[in-house]
Write a protein that binds this DNA or RNA. Sequence first.
DNA 1: TGTACATCAGTGAACGCGCGTTCACTGATGTAC
DNA 2: TGTACATCAGTGAACGCGCGTTCACTGATGTAC
Lengths: 237, 237
Amino acid sequence: MAVTPRRERNRLATLAEIKATARAQMAERGAAALSLREVARQMGLSSAAIYRYFADRDALVTALIVDAYADLAAALDAAVADHPDAALAQRFLALALAYRAWAVGHPAGYALILGTPIPGYQAPDAITRPAAHRAMARLVEVALAARGEASPPDRAEPSAEPLAVGLSDLPPAARALALAGWGQMHGLVALEIFGHLDALGDDPASLYRREMLAFADRLGVGHPRDRAAVPAPAGAV
Amino acid sequence: MAVTPRRERNRLATLAEIKATARAQMAERGAAALSLREVARQMGLSSAAIYRYFADRDALVTALIVDAYADLAAALDAAVADHPDAALAQRFLALALAYRAWAVGHPAGYALILGTPIPGYQAPDAITRPAAHRAMARLVEVALAARGEASPPDRAEPSAEPLAVGLSDLPPAARALALAGWGQMHGLVALEIFGHLDALGDDPASLYRREMLAFADRLGVGHPRDRAAVPAPAGAV
DNA sequence: TGTACATCAGTGAACGCGCGTTCACTGATGTAC
DNA sequence: TGTACATCAGTGAACGCGCGTTCACTGATGTAC
């Protein structure tokens, strides 16, 4: 009965193809070099046809950003869903490894959402922010649990709906913890996928894993290191 | 006697003005949007005149990259020069704080050297790599000292000449330590200057300081945490 | 000190290019009766 | 089942733009004698 009509299906397929082509192009030449005309050309469409699907270039970029966040969120959800009853440290580690795996597998997508902003493009926060929140939901849960500030929400259907609480709504201690973790994840991942570790002989994967294990150590509630480090030092530095 | 002749001086001044104008433009519109014509326009030059100073656009970009690395290197050198006899942890902290300060003060420069690569631009490694090495020299020293692998070189004139040893020449343990530190520095700094912490109420400076203090803790030679964390865990994660 | 010549910073016009976007249109797909 | 009409995906030509780069040139600055 409520079968999607043919036209609708075609439309959705073309829309998906536009986005996939754009993604491939970004992967090859960088997010900032995305060209509507080139996308159309590769698809065998006239450039004007794209405007049946996206109001303008920025709308396509926004759609790609939202997709990338959603894809990352799904990867992170899946990672923790695999270890529903694991200890905090293990849940964090699974999360962190999945985060890097997604970034390494989708460097253009990662650059799009977390790299240098695209010149001339201004993300519409109302659309982009919830997607970003959603991607950080599992990390927020872990930070909350680590600080004992609240129990994680029902985890039976982890990817069901966006968390009411985003990074910005976390209590300060949990937020600082989440940001510290995210910072470490992002730092090593960004250095790796943008090629700054290339010349070094290291295996970025094991370096990353080691650092994430070290961080997982800190997830015990009120770990002494964190307490000791908070106040500014007496020295002049 | 050996006074730089007028023509030479003018030439150098114009060259510097081109770079300064380009830097300002990058700061406003992003590194990828740098335009030779726009630079010339802002300087009241014809666009062709730029080609008296740079072979092409890429040459200008390369010069800007080298300058940015040199500027960062100078900032880091100055930071440790202020604390010649400080303990390792304090030297690292001074370094880390100077790193963030430079990045926050020169976001476009930071994006240029450590952000998403510019589409279509390929850095000439032979020119760019030594500059990058030079910028990392002080961090390399600290990592070496932390691991007791070698004594830091003569620090009487810290910015005098490039270190013979770069990140890639470090012994594995020291290199891993240096990369871990750099990763943390880069992660928080990149999130901050590219606006991903904007919506949060936090003070990025104190978050950063706190994390760097925690990392400085690990600089004791053979700190137990590092030893414990190196081997992969027995668990399935 | 004056003259002839060389250097070279800067000009202005032109090249070919690819871009985002608009517009009036065609023709196939769907709907109402 | 057939016909008339509405929808709408896609076309092709055109718009104005800014870009990087080249080229033959002008005219001021410097040098040799």
